[in-house]
Design a protein around this nucleic acid. Structure first.
Length: 609
DNA sequence: AGCACGCCGACT
DNA sequence: GTCGGCGTGCTC
């Protein structure tokens, strides 16, 4: 009898390998790579579902081989390329193949399967994958009247691939981008060939789209970050929008991100890849710098941008610009940094900044006008320690500004759009929109005036990536400007002011990236963090890791996290060593909790510094 | 995950 | 003497 290698879509490290089973002759016809099988496993009575990832005449296993019990459906659910990608990502991130497979394969829907018919296709074009290109592409600075410039650009790039019956994979940061992309697909009559891979779709749709992506070539497969692992038959091109956006990072182990996964996919499947954004991430900037990516600039005509130096949100000139634009019945956008009524509260009698008694975090006025700790959410009354009853806001949030502007421009409608209360589109008229970064509503033809009111504050965050993230948020907001519009960026000085005025985000991020390189910080190096709850376990891990020369430890603010930098070239050996050390500590620890992981390895931490 | 194997305390 | 606690380790 022939032998099949089977893997399980399980996050358990003990099951992170292939198990061999004999193929009974009556099932031999149905067994092929990527089909689901029912197999006996362990001493459990009920059969376990696995996936066939290899068929051979023999097995290296010395024990007694068992037989596959059943093949519930002859349909392939996993492609060879997907499996290789999961293996590569697991090894790079010191994670487990099974946990990646679990998210790459949706839940089976028998109802979807009953209706699924593979379109019989001609023999695939085999014109090879000659001329693989890897690019960073800047789309036009300004969006079209009805469509996002990047989405239109994506359509142009994917068209020729679809015509060749190549599939195209499109990975987007969030649902707003999905909306923009779907609008572009619709406008170009491509919706029929596009298959969304989304965890929020219903089980039947999800499974249907998954099956199409496995079995049919020449499709547009798109979705948010999870789609990076989606099957794509005859893949010819990978497109990623705004790779620097936080949403491209997976929040659970093994903490992969779209950029790195898709770079690996491009290498493994030898296909072209295009990263696109208005302002590059520092990683993309580095890849352009070392010549791995070529830089294609389609940004075109620059809009008119004014930079003011003062810290005042709306100086006289800006105020009259807003006022004049509204009078002309044209829309205005004001981008501010955060929610709530105030970012910090100062007592008017003792001048103390109000802090939480538990965690020392600054208090703020939340959207419900309750004084609350920003960190632990504890609510406070309206009384300072000194007995003072009055507070002054050190910086205003969106709701306070809405109220103030409603008074200043009584005849205009004032709308607020934030991450949690988002408006996606507004009518083209004299309307004043206040939005937090990433929540800017679209408007046909663009805004006639855009004010980036908190530019200075957004730079001030004590984070490694503050500058590149600020550039990303500004550039994305400015894409909403009308061709005849004017933008005002508040509170920048010196070289940075000049660079922002010229929309030289490429250069700003490049300089920032080079400065970080000199300090040995990402993206020139990688940053590893290991987080746990138990300090003794972390201590013993620290001792184990101290013998590894490739790692250089960096301090962290909490005792619950160890952080190290390591060189990109050492990536695979570091991943191996760390995985080993963590499994040893886990094995000998006395603090194990059932079903809970003791230590979390993040091979590319974004937030410890 | 399940489940068996295994070596120490209170029970008919 | 045995029943059963769940720590440890394996499952093709």
């Amino acid at each position: 009898m022939k032998v099949a290698s089977v893997v399980f879509a399980s996050p358990l490290p003990q099951l992170d390998k292939e198990f061999d089973y004999l193929i009974p002759e009556e099932l031999e016809a149905a067994i092929q790579f990527g089909v689901q099988v029912e197999v006996p496993f362990g001493s459990g009575k009920k059969p376990k579902t696995g996936i066939v990832v290899g068929i051979d005449g023999k097995s290296d296993f010395t024990g007694n081989l068992l037989e596959i019990l059943d093949v519930p459906s002859p349909l392939q659910v996993l492609s060879l390329e997907q499996y290789k990608l999961a293996q590569a990502v697991a090894s790079r991130q010191a994670g487990i193949v099974g946990e990646l497979l679990a998210s790459a394969i949706p839940k089976r829907s028998k109802r979807a399967e009953a209706k699924f018919v593979v379109e019989s296709s001609a023999v695939l074009s085999t014109d090879g994958h000659a001329g693989v290109t890897r690019q960073f592409l800047r789309p036009a600075h300004l969006d079209g009247d009805k469509q996002a410039s990047w989405a239109m650009q994506f359509i142009e790039l994917l068209r020729p691939e679809i015509a060749k019956r190549r599939s195209v994979l499109v990975v987007l940061p969030d649902y707003r981008a999905i909306g923009d992309f779907e609008a572009a697909l619709e406008a170009n009559s491509l919706s029929q060939q596009a298959f969304r891979q989304s965890s929020s779709d219903g089980a039947v749709n999800r499974w249907t789209n998954h099956l199409y992506a496995v079995h049919q070539e020449g499709l547009i497969v798109y979705g948010t970050r999870g789609a990076a692992f989606a099957p794509c038959k005859n893949l010819g091109l990978i497109l990623i929008w705004d790779d620097g956006d936080d949403s491209h990072h997976e929040q659970s182990s093994p903490y992969w991100n779209s950029r790195d996964v898709l770079l690996q996919r491009s290498e493994l499947e030898n296909v072209s890849i295009v990263f696109s954004s208005h302002s590059p991430s520092s990683e993309i900037s580095r890849l352009v710098e070392i010549g791995y990516l070529s830089h294609i600039d389609h940004s075109g005509a620059k809009p008119l941008v004014r930079v003011t130096q003062g810290s005042e949100r709306l100086d006289q000139e800006t105020f009259s610009l807003v006022s004049k634009t509204l009078k002309n019945n044209s829309p205005v956008l004001i981008q501010i940094a955060n929610l709530g009524f105030a970012t910090a509260l100062v007592c008017t009698s003792c001048k103390e900044v109000q802090r939480c008694v538990d965690c020392q975090t600054a208090l703020w006025l939340d959207p419900a006008k309750v004084i609350r700790c920003r960190g632990c959410k504890r609510a406070y009354g309206n009384l300072c320690k000194c007995g003072g009853k009055n507070f002054r806001a050190t910086s205003q949030g969106s709701h306070a500004l809405t109220e103030q502007l409603s008074r200043s421009f009584p005849e205009a409608a004032v709308l607020t759009s934030t991450g949690s209360e988002r408006i996606t589109r507004v009518e083209r008229k004299g309307i004043l929109v206040i939005a937090t970064p990433g929540a800017e509503p679209s408007v046909d033809g663009g805004y006639e005036a855009i004010v980036l009111a908190d530019a200075q504050m957004m730079l001030g965050y004590p984070r490694l990536r503050a500058l590149e993230q600020a550039c990303q948020k500004w550039a994305n907001a400015l894409a909403h400007l009308a061709k005849t519009g004017v933008a005002v960026v508040v509170g920048l000085t010196g070289t940075l002011a000049d660079q922002v005025r010229n929309l030289a985000f490429m250069e700003i991020v490049r300089q920032d990236m080079l400065e970080r390189s000199e300090l040995g910080l990402p993206p020139a190096t990688r940053l590893l963090s290991i987080t746990g709850t138990n300090t003794t376990d972390l201590e013993s891990l620290k001792t184990k890791l101290s013998s590894l020369e490739e790692l250089s430890q960096i301090p962290t603010s909490t005792g619950k996290t160890l952080a190290y930098t390591f060189s990109i070239a050492n990536g695979s050996s570091v991943a191996n060593d760390v995985r080993l050390a963590v499994s040893q500590v886990t094995k000998t620890s006395k603090n194990k909790l059932p079903g809970q992981r003791l230590l979390f390895i993040n091979m590319d931490d974004q937030s410890v510094i």
